[in-house]
């Protein structure tokens, strides 16, 4: 009895957990419209945190704030403070290119570049000048593909276009591409929504393995997926962070009625 509760409650004690990224009073406006309201959320290193909530709740917006992808949208205005290792990422001194190399992103739809598999993975290292020789680059591409669990399937056809792969393979290629730049945080925006269940399971297994080396933030519409892959879960609704906590607690005993209603399928 007490053993079980100990297991259940270890994750709640944040003492041994290091905060990798943290949002303080994050507000986002798209022109006149406010999309996020005072979101406070800590992202713990080497954990998977899932952001759930109905469409348009602001979870993707928050995710895109974490590597400043919202910068590309002119009317988007972010206020509040988001830190990476204690440093404000919206600080003028921060180079957004360097930030995005540290905070990688994987998108909803697999989006391999119209290049070969090899070139897709080598893209990030090349633009950041991470390797000095061809051998070094080869090594980095190989290890990234290995870690993305794709190496066995593509090692004989690295020169074929990335688009020739299946959907699940393409998404793993995108993950390999993202981890090739050696990011510290990996943002995933509904990475499995375009994939079949088996490909999804493979990606989920991969996410669990990647947790050792990366901190992962995943936006998902599938609550089962959030329950399966993440240690922490945050529930957004209408631009507000309603509840955040250990995944077990959110999915068995959410404290907030809105969370309960959403995850049991009572509000859309």
């Amino acid at each position: 009895m007490s053993v079980a509760t100990d297991i259940l409650h270890t994750n709640v004690q944040t003492g041994k957990e290091t905060i990798k990224m943290s949002g303080q009073k994050v507000c986002v406006h798209y022109g006149e419209k406010q999309a996020l309201f005072d979101v406070d959320l800590d992202i713990v290193a080497n954990q998977v945190i899932s952001l759930i909530g109905p469409s348009g709740c602001g979870k993707s917006t928050f995710l895109r704030c974490l590597n400043r992808m919202n910068d590309t949208i002119d009317i988007c205005n972010v206020s509040g403070e988001i830190t990476l290792d204690g440093q404000d990422i919206y600080d003028k001194a921060i180079d957004v290119v360097e930030l995005r190399a540290r905070v990688g992103m994987v998108f909803q739809k697999p989006n391999p570049f119209p290049k070969s598999i090899y070139e897709n993975v080598a893209y990030g290292p090349r633009i950041h000048g991470m390797t000095r020789s061809k051998d070094e680059l080869d090594e980095l591409v190989t290890s990234s593909l290995r870690r993305a669990g794709l190496w066995q399937e593509v090692k004989d056809r690295l020169d074929q276009p990335g688009t020739s792969l299946s959907g699940g393979q393409q998404q793993r290629l995108c993950i390999a591409r993202a981890i090739a730049t050696k990011p510290e945080v990996l943002l995933m925006d509904e990475p499995c929504s375009a994939l079949d269940p088996i490909a999804t399971a493979i990606i989920e297994e991969l996410i669990d393995e990647l947790r050792e080396n990366f901190t992962i933030v995943i936006v998902t519409h599938s609550m089962q997926q959030a329950a399966r892959v993440s240690q922490k879960t945050a529930f957004f609704h209408l631009g507000k962070l309603i509840e955040e906590g250990p995944t077990e607690q959110i999915f068995t005993n959410p404290h907030h009625k809105k969370t309960q209603d959403y995850i049991t399928g009572r509000i859309g």
Partner: peptide
Amino acid sequence: PQSLRDGSAGLGATKSETIRRV
């Protein structure tokens, strides 16, 4: 597709790198 631009930007590429290489 915008997704290619996003993908490239998400890897830390600048706008001109994205245009030239993707």
